[in-house]
Each structure stands twice: as structure tokens, then as C-alpha cells.
């Protein structure tokens, strides 16, 4: 009886986290298109509902009622599994995101490694979808995407090491609490910039959206997908973008901490601070999409391996040297 109670309680908590995330993902698509249109002096989606807010609901309804087409020559099992994997992995990582000191679904010791591991698994949804479609455009898109994501993961990993040197713990709540005096964006500003650009590449956002460069590859790995399966890829992609924004705000912008520790800011509950920061980073993502032209593939690889990786490695040495010299290394046991 006790275990059933725990089961119901946990399910309730998970739903309480996942349903807002899914709704936010739907709304964020609308925000993305609005910001994009705003920069280009267009109106954007403004017809369905007030300010076009219900546009995503209309889109979702359209996808649900469309026919799912599975190509005859495709590898059917993997073709169906691929969008499910993308979607699941994008949602599963929200379990460790702390919304306040106590408001976290799973407060695990290796939270940041978990986030990193799950985001590195995200490449499989794409590569499986591309391969199982058994068609040349999806395959090329998948290969490109996998190479790109693996490359930029390396620099994200090194950037995480930078932050961990300053924190001395892998727990996400400890990372947030270590920023009470100063957000890490101040001392580690170059790392924040590199993290932001790597996050763009990791989530296949413009200017690094080569996997789905429509001029060359139709729609990349999702060319053969239709209906709800396409929508799942699409939702997973946006959930991943939100997750990268959350990761950026936890690592560099102080997570759920208010900007200054004062009475006025304490009035707003801490989950809202995290949400504000995520939204801020997401609007930056959307602005970048509108203003920067797409990179060429060799430039993308050069940027990842020859510029970001050495630079962040040098920064690791600098951070470690600084902390050691001034005797500021955390977590001495």
C-alpha cells in the first residue's frame, strides 16, 4: 500500500513537471516565430487566438490528423523508434533541473553529468531516423548532424569542467548555490559565449542548421517523416533547445537565484527567476536565427575543433591556475 502511494505521488510530480514543459515547448515555437518575424519586419503568426497564441495548438491538431507515411523501403522498426527516442530523451533530462532549492524531481549527485550524457544521447534519434529512412537526403543529413553534435559536445564538456572547477561538486543545486555572490557569467564570460554558440550547434539551430539545410538536403533527417512522427521530432528539438537554455542559465546565470540577494527580488518565487533566464536565453536564440546567415560545413568543423576546443582548454588551465594560486579551490576534504 505504501509503495502504491509513493508510485502515485511520483507520477503526480512527473506529470506536474512534464505537462508545463510540453505546453511551454508549444508556446515557445510561437515565440520563436514571432521574434523571427519581428526582426524581419513581418507580422508572424497572429491569426489564431489573441496575438496568434493558439497557433501551436492549431499546428498540433493538423499534425495529429495527418496521415503517417512509412516508406516501403525503410527499416520500419527503427523508423518508428527514432522520433520516440528524440522526444523521450528531450523530456527525460528535465528530471534533474532544479527550479528552487527543494523543487527538483531528482536531486542526484551527478546531475550535470546526467544532463551531459542525455544530451549526448540525443544524436541517436537523428542518426536512426536518417538511416532508417533509406534515402540519400536523410542519410546525408544524419551523418552531418552526428558529426556536428559530437564535435560541439567536446567543447561543451570542457566548458562544464571550467564551471566545475569553480564549484567543486557535480550536483546542480550546488552549482547554483556556488553563484550566490557572483554569477559565473562574470568571471567566465568567454566560456559563456562559447557555451552559447556550442548550444546553437548542438541543437542544430541556425546558423548551424546544416543537417536540415533545405537548399541542399530538402529537410535533412526528417525528410521522410510526416504527421505526428514529424511533430515529435519537432517537439523534441524545441524541448532540447529549452533544455540547453536551462543548462546555460544554471551553469552561468545563477539558475533560480535572483540577480541581487535583496528583499524586493525575494518577493518573486525562485522558479520564476529560472524561467525568466530560460526565456531570455531563448529570445537570444531566436534573434540569432533571424540575423546570422548559415555557416558552411568546413567552417563549422573548423570553428568547433580548431578554435573552441583549444580556447576552452586553455581557459581550463587558466581557471585552475588562478584558483590554485589564490588558494580558492573549492571542496577541499
Amino acid at each position: 500500500m505504501d509503495s502504491i502511494y509513493i508510485l502515485i505521488n511520483e507520477t503526480y510530480k512527473i506529470l506536474f513537471l512534464l505537462i508545463p514543459v510540453l505546453v511551454t515547448v508549444a508556446m515557445i515555437v510561437w515565440l520563436d516565430r514571432r521574434v523571427w518575424a519581428f526582426v524581419q519586419k513581418r507580422r508572424g503568426p497572429n491569426v489564431v487566438g489573441p496575438f496568434g497564441l493558439l497557433q501551436s495548438v492549431a499546428d498540433a491538431l493538423k499534425y495529429i490528423f495527418k496521415e503517417i507515411i512509412i516508406p516501403a523501403s525503410s527499416n520500419k522498426v527503427i523508423f518508428v523508434i527514432a522520433p520516440i527516442i528524440t522526444m523521450t530523451l528531450a523530456l527525460v533530462s528535465w528530471a534533474v533541473i532544479p527550479f528552487s532549492e527543494n523543487l527538483v524531481l531528482a536531486d542526484i549527485n551527478v546531475g550535470i553529468l546526467y544532463l551531459f550524457a542525455v544530451s549526448s544521447l540525443g544524436v541517436y534519434g537523428i542518426i536512426m531516423g536518417g538511416w532508417a529512412s533509406n534515402s540519400k537526403y536523410p542519410f546525408l543529413g544524419a551523418i552531418r548532424s552526428a558529426a556536428q553534435m559530437v564535435s560541439y559536445e567536446v567543447s561543451i564538456g570542457v566548458i562544464i569542467i571550467n564551471v566545475l572547477l569553480c564549484v567543486g561538486s557535480l550536483n546542480l543545486n550546488d552549482i547554483v548555490l556556488a553563484q550566490q555572490n557572483m554569477w559565473f557569467v562574470v568571471p567566465l564570460f568567454p566560456m559563456f559565449v562559447i557555451f552559447f554558440i556550442s548550444a546553437l550547434a548542438e541543437t542544430n539551430r541556425p546558423p548551424f542548421d546544416l543537417p536540415e539545410a533545405e537548399a541542399e538536403l530538402v529537410a535533412g533527417y526528417q525528410t521522410e517523416y510526416s504527421g505526428m512522427m514529424y511533430a515529435m521530432f519537432w517537439l523534441g528539438e524545441y524541448a532540447n533547445i529549452l533544455l540547453m537554455c536551462a543548462m546555460g542559465s544554471i551553469l552561468f546565470l545563477g539558475g533560480w537565484l535572483p540577480p541581487v540577494d535583496s528583499e524586493i527580488f525575494a518577493f518573486i518565487p525562485s522558479p520564476f527567476w529560472l524561467i525568466f533566464k530560460i526565456l531570455f536565453l531563448f529570445i537570444l536564440f531566436a534573434l540569432i536565427k533571424a540575423i546570422v546567415p548559415r555557416y558552411r560545413y568546413d567552417q563549422l568543423m573548423k570553428l568547433g575543433w580548431k578554435i573552441f576546443l583549444p580556447f576552452s582548454l586553455i581557459w581550463v588551465i587558466l581557471t585552475a591556475g588562478y584558483l590554485l594560486y589564490f588558494n580558492m579551490l573549492p571542496g577541499q576534504i
Binding site: V110, L113, Y114, F116, A117, S120, L121, V123, I127, A146, V150, E153, G157
Partner: peptide, 13 residues
């Protein structure tokens, strides 16, 4: 976690 990151995230790719 390291197993996931290294083997699944990089080697298996």
C-alpha cells in the same frame, strides 16, 4: 554516467 558519455555518446557513434 561516464559509461554513457564515453561509450554511448562517442564510441558507439
Amino acid at each position: 554516467m561516464i559509461m554513457l558519455i564515453v561509450y554511448v555518446g562517442a564510441v558507439a557513434v
